[in-house]
Amino acid sequence: MFTGIVEETGKITKLEKAGSNLNIYVKADMTPELKIDQSVAHNGVCLTVVAIDGEEYTVTAVKETLEKTNLGKLKTGDRINLERGMKLGDRLDGHIVQGHVDQTATCTYKKEADGSWAYSFEYDPEIGNITIEKGSITINGVSLTVVNSQKNKFSVAIIPYTYEHTTFKDLKVGDTVNLEFDVIGKYVKRLTDLS
């Protein structure tokens, strides 16, 4: 389980196909503190550390993960949002994030807004996910608050700290992002769909 509070951005140093899987090599300051079998969120996707070598570690993404997230679009040199699993008893500074991406979205708008940044995203509503005005959403592993919630689109506001310390400053209109919708909202929707 995660909180959507990005610890740092890592750098993709190598991408290696292994059958239908992809081995992703990441250089990050946190690497010396990691251990084999540990869960780390990469742009919001929970992946298991399978190897550690100095400042670089390796995770493997399977075919389904590559098809349902933006990890298959990574290139060597890209930055990626990283968060280690939550410690029991720590503060929950973001919101409950599982590290299971529900679907991707496309960035449709990016503009500086008097000290902050405004972004808009569109997603396929046929999958059945919804946003809630002032509810939580995870975008590329970052816990954010939804504004302008509509059937297939929404917006978020990014403060300068988040802009500088995540991959949001790299994000361009047309880019694909990972979305994890609010887990409580998903359960409520599921229950109301059944009744």
Results as ranks from 00 to 15, higher is better:
residue 119 Y to L: 14
residue 77 G to I: 03
residue 23 N to Q: 12
residue 140 N to T: 03
residue 181 F to Y: 11
residue 190 R to C: 00
residue 105 A to L: 05
residue 92 L to E: 00
residue 42 H to S: 01
residue 25 Y to D: 08
residue 163 Y to T: 09
residue 60 T to P: 00
residue 174 G to N: 09
residue 119 Y to C: 06
residue 49 V to M: 10
residue 57 Y to I: 02
residue 30 M to E: 04
residue 51 A to G: 14
residue 134 K to A: 06
residue 159 I to R: 05
residue 6 V to D: 05
residue 146 V to I: 13
residue 122 E to I: 11
residue 170 D to E: 15
residue 99 G to V: 04
residue 88 L to Q: 12
residue 13 T to R: 07
residue 47 L to A: 03
residue 51 A to S: 15
residue 25 Y to Q: 08
residue 174 G to V: 01
residue 22 L to C: 03
residue 110 K to Q: 06
residue 75 K to R: 09
residue 124 D to K: 12
residue 31 T to F: 07
residue 173 V to N: 05
residue 22 L to D: 00
residue 191 L to I: 03
residue 113 A to T: 08
residue 51 A to T: 14
residue 187 Y to K: 05
residue 6 V to N: 08
residue 77 G to W: 11
residue 110 K to L: 05
residue 163 Y to P: 06
residue 75 K to M: 12
residue 48 T to C: 13
residue 129 N to M: 14
residue 147 V to E: 07
residue 163 Y to N: 13
residue 10 G to C: 14
residue 82 L to D: 00
residue 187 Y to V: 01
residue 45 V to W: 11
residue 58 T to D: 04
residue 179 L to D: 00
residue 34 L to V: 02
residue 9 T to I: 13
residue 92 L to S: 04
residue 164 E to C: 09
residue 114 D to H: 12
residue 25 Y to W: 15
residue 12 I to S: 04
residue 118 A to S: 13
residue 128 G to H: 01
residue 160 P to E: 02
residue 24 I to E: 02
residue 191 L to Q: 02
residue 133 E to P: 07
residue 96 I to W: 07
residue 191 L to N: 01
residue 13 T to W: 10
residue 195 S to Y: 15
residue 175 D to G: 06
residue 8 E to A: 09
residue 41 A to K: 14
residue 120 S to F: 10
residue 109 Y to M: 08
residue 32 P to V: 14
residue 116 S to G: 07
